[in-house]
Amino acid sequence: MSQDHEESEKPRIGIFYCGGAMSSAGELTAVTAFDVMQRLGPKEVGMGCIAALAAGVPKHFRTMQSLEKVLVIDGCPNACARRLMEKTGARMDGYVNLGKDLGIKKIGPFKPLAFSQEDRERAVEAVIAKIREMDAGKAE
């Protein structure tokens, strides 16, 4: 049964990812977000919907803004998720760009699964490290 945004149990940290699976880097943002959620658990981390935010769905905006921290993951220098967040005026407490910050190569177009397992692990570790920085008050 569908839960209401106001009634649902909320995680401490919300992650928005680009998820633009036209390239390996875009797909890796989603894979990383899912991996981080599985490692830290749903009470610690939950995912937001960049499409709902961009589309101006009011409940989604309110729910995500009510979380303790919001982290955004982009795959490449286009920084599409960040730009969409900025357009909506949504809060962003931390940011990781897999290309700019970690030097992860963008392979594509139309090659969503062309990332390496090594890059996947590096991305997950970088996002968890960013969460720790946010908690310590050192991010974005």
């Binding site: 680009c18 998820g19 633009g20 036209m22 875009g26 797909e27 961009a54 998720a81 969503p112």
Partner: peptide, 8 residues
């Protein structure tokens, strides 16, 4: 089939 990027 190719997946396209909504954010882009």
């Amino acid at each position: 089939v190719g997946i396209c990027s909504l954010p882009a």
